[in-house]
Every structure is written in C-alpha cells, then in structure tokens.
C-alpha cells in the first residue's frame, strides 16, 4: 500500500522534479563554463590567490539552489492535495493517516535528496577538474549546509501547505525561515565543519512534526 502512495507522489511531482533537476544541472553546467572561462582569462596563480587567500567562493551561486528545489517539490506535492480539500481523498485511504503522511513526506525528501546528492557530485567533480582534490573536498564541506537547507525548505513548505489554518501557516513559515537562517551564517570556507550536525539534527524534527497539521486537518470543526 505504501508503494502505491509512493507511486501517487511520483506521478504528482515528476514533472516538477524534472524541471528542478534540469535547473540544478543547468546551474552546474554554468559553473563549469564559468570556471573554464575564468581559467582562460586569468592566470592560474591569480585564481589560486582569489580562492585560497581572499576566500572567494566561485560556486556561491548554488547557495540557494537546493532551497528553491525543496520549495518547488514541496509545493508541487502538497498544493494539489489542499486545493478543493483533496487531502480528504488521501485520508480516506485504508492506511494509517500518520503512516500515509510520513510516506508522502519521505517520498518528497527522497526527491530533494537525490538532486542534492547529484549537486554534491557535480560540485566535487567540477571543482576537482580545476583545483586540487583538497579544494574539491573543501567545496563539498562548504556547500553541505546549503544542501541540507534544501531538505529544511522542503519540510517547511510541506508543513505550511498542509496546515489548515492561515495564521499557523505563517508561524510554520517563520520557523522554517529561522532554520534556514541557521544554515546561512557563514560566508567562508567550511564554516560549519564542526557545527553542522547540531542545526541538522534539530531541523530533522520537522519530519515527525508534519503529522501535526495532518492531525489538525482531520480535527477541524469548520
């Protein structure tokens, strides 16, 4: 039964997932072209100086990429459920409501995570093409909070979309915004090397919390 719910979620988001995938790949293609152009017009030692002395992050424009991806997938997944109260169709399925909601959310998380892993792979591969291996590893560690924020953005969007009450939607948006803010507190290399696990762990509380708006949806009185 849960595989059937995964099937439904896939049918719902596949187009938007594909668009997000193309967007992510496009940004990394641009990163590759941009770096190649840089190495064509600049001396290698100058780029080295920019990257490792001044601390220029040449891949900084991927900073919000997975956040956008998370919002796209979260909205694509839960907006059709909420329009016309179609969420009732899912809640009437012969599956425990909490399991059903968690399954939907895990499906979406998986969709974001796959693109996030692909981003990490493309970042590492592209940076390693122009810089030493240590530079590529450093880029990966620097980008890790940005990648993680994609999951938070997805969960925040899901929570907000499912919530039946408008005032609470704003509260959830504010909470999600606060968590995202936590992941963007550094503009240097590897700012979060020893700290990422804390906000990451706390933000994963978003996963069980999606049960709450679904519960509230079923317990409305109007």
């Amino acid at each position: 039964m849960l595989s059937s719910i995964l099937y439904k979620e896939w049918l719902k988001v596949r187009l938007f997932w594909g668009v997000a995938l193309v967007l992510n790949i496009g940004v990394f293609v641009y990163l590759f072209v941009d770096l190649r152009h840089l190495f064509t017009i600049e001396h290698a030692e100058m780029i080295w100086y920019q990257a490792f002395k001044i601390g220029t992050l040449h891949y900084a424009y991927m900073k919000y990429l997975l956040v956008i991806t998370g919002v796209i997938i979260g909205a694509a997944q839960f907006t059709p459920e909420m329009i016309g109260h179609r969420f009732r169709l899912s809640l009437h399925l012969p599956v425990r409501p909490n399991s059903m909601v968690l399954c939907c959310v895990l499906a979406g998380l998986l969709g974001v995570a796959v693109i996030g892993m692909l981003d990490a792979f493309m970042l590492y591969t592209i940076i390693a093409r122009f810089f030493p291996r240590e530079g590529a590893e450093s880029a990966l560690l620097t980008a890790l909070p940005w990648l993680f924020s994609g999951l938070v953005a997805y969960l925040g969007t899901a929570l907000t979309a499912m919530e039946p009450r408008l005032s609470r939607k704003f509260v959830y948006l504010a909470i999600a915004g606060g968590f995202l803010w936590l992941f963007y507190q550094g503009n240097d290399y590897e700012t979060y090397n020893w700290a990422l696990w804390k906000p990451a762990l706390i933000s994963m509380l978003f996963i069980p919390s999606v049960i709450l708006p679904a519960y509230r949806y079923r317990n409305r009185s109007s």
Binding site: M1, S4, Y7, K8, L11, G84, H85, L89, V95
Partner: peptide, 22 residues
C-alpha cells in the same frame, strides 16, 4: 466526495492502478 473529488493529475489507468492496491 461532493463534487466528485479525484486526483486530477492521474490518468484513467493510473488512478485504477493506484486504488487497486488499497
């Protein structure tokens, strides 16, 4: 449901496949 609610992003065959599993 009132208004014949359905998963509108599905096709005739997809919705049958989805519900049949339940």
């Amino acid at each position: 449901f009132e208004g014949h609610l359905a998963y509108e992003f599905m096709s005739i065959a997809q919705i049958e496949k989805f519900y049949s599993a339940h």
